[in-house]
């Protein structure tokens, strides 16, 4: 039998324990969003507007950027913030449109695996990158101009 509260008894909130993850996610979207506006619009400006635009992007261009810790930090920060922001957005959309529990769990598992896998891959690539790798003689001209002669 259900007990009905005494009339006019004051409203009490049921106590919540621990971190409110849904609220943390909501807040994360806004904080990361503001930072990403700067990081991504800066990324687009440097890579697509300056110099030769997208036509100027090649190994030497990337090596020239990642030879500096400034762009390494910029890109790794962008990677983490953007992928978590995107994965959390996709999670919201799955929660809204996937009608069965099985479908929601499956889709969110795929989203989570993709996000974690690509964050690890991207971080490894950007932090272990060598702007002047050993290459065969016919590919020496693909390296940036600051590389010492091999």
């Amino acid at each position: 039998m259900t007990t009905i509260a005494t009339p006019r008894s004051p409203y009490t909130r049921s106590p919540r324990r621990g971190l409110n993850w849904e609220k943390a996610g909501w807040l994360y979207m806004r904080i990361s969003g503001v930072i990403l506006v700067v990081l991504i619009l800066g990324h687009l400006f440097v890579n697509l507007m300056l110099g030769e635009g997208v036509k100027g992007i090649d190994f030497a261009f990337v090596a020239g950027k990642w030879a500096s810790p400034f762009w390494q930090v910029w890109d790794v920060l962008m990677l983490w913030l953007a992928l978590i922001h995107g994965a959390n957005g996709m999670r919201t959309i799955v929660n809204d449109y996937a009608t069965t529990r099985g479908m929601r769990v499956t889709l969110k598992t795929f989203i989570g695996i993709s996000a974690v896998g690509l964050i690890l891959l991207g971080t490894l690539v950007a932090t272990t990158f060598d702007p002047c790798p050993q290459v065969s003689v016919d590919q020496l001209d693909l390296l940036p101009s600051f590389c010492p002669p091999q």
Binding site: D58, F59, A60, V62, L121, G122, L124, V125, T128, F129, P133, V135, Q139, L142, L143
Partner: peptide, 9 residues
């Protein structure tokens, strides 16, 4: 972008 870690070519 990860291909940048494989080779310039």
């Amino acid at each position: 972008t990860a291909v940048v870690r494989i080779s310039p070519e």
